[in-house]
């Protein structure tokens, strides 16, 4: 029963994260959903993902969101949705219902239960599925390079020679003007 209540709470947090008018409260509701998901995973018996979900999902990601929101600022636009709400609702209900019906039909399915000895998670993650982890390291490398490229230039420029900064300044107007033009043309 407990896990059912948690599941309902998670979904409500998710709904609130979308409905909240302020971005900051959205991020906090998302953190709540994360923390409850961690609890749900813990009850399921998946302790390690629960811990990671709590520290990374509820902790790190929330910090990042708050950081991004504080830089970009709250921005309220009189929101009319991108896709008409009713159409979106119809699409979602359709997709979810299709899946639900499929799952309900198959609920009597025989489950393939493995008879082999249960191995530990750390063994699975670090040894049996080490390749997953190695590829993740490549992915993190790519992500770091990309983020450096997106937001790292200015900082690097400032620690370099004074000449570089001058150039950056003299170039700035030239960069901005055509962009405004583009805006007008569009």
């Amino acid at each position: 029963m407990f896990s059912g209540l948690i599941a309902i709470a998670i979904i409500m947090c998710a709904v609130q994260a979308i409905r909240a008018a302020r971005l900051l409260s959205s991020a906090v509701w998302l953190a709540g959903a994360s923390a409850l998901t961690a609890l749900w995973l813990y009850i399921l018996g998946a302790q390690q993902p629960a811990v990671i979900e709590l520290s990374v999902g509820a902790g790190l990601v929330t910090v990042l969101f708050i950081f991004a929101i504080s830089i970009s600022g709250e921005e309220a636009f009189t929101a009319y949705p991108r896709v008409p709400r009713k159409l979106a609702l119809l699409l979602v209900v359709g997709a979810v219902a299709l899946l639900a019906v499929d799952l309900a039909v198959a609920s009597g399915m025989p489950r393939a239960v493995d008879e082999r000895a249960v191995s530990t998670l750390s063994d699975t993650f670090w040894n049996a599925r080490a390749l997953d982890m190695l590829v993740q390291m490549v992915l993190i490398f790519a992500g770091v390079l990309g983020v450096l490229n997106l937001i790292g230039h200015e900082e690097i420029k400032e620690v370099e020679t004074p000449g570089e900064i001058q150039i950056a300044q003299t170039h700035l107007p030239q960069v901005v003007e055509p962009e405004n033009e583009e805006l007008l043309r569009v």
Binding site: L139, G143, G146, N149, V175, E182
Partner: peptide
């Protein structure tokens, strides 16, 4: 040769691709 491993490879490709698409980051 593993369904999930394939997904991880694919995500790595995707992240590299996003970053390369947006490489000229001053271009709207």
């Amino acid at each position: 040769r593993d369904l999930f491993n394939l997904w991880v490879w694919f995500e790595a490709l995707a992240v590299a691709s996003y970053m390369l698409v947006a490489f000229q980051r001053d271009e709207r």
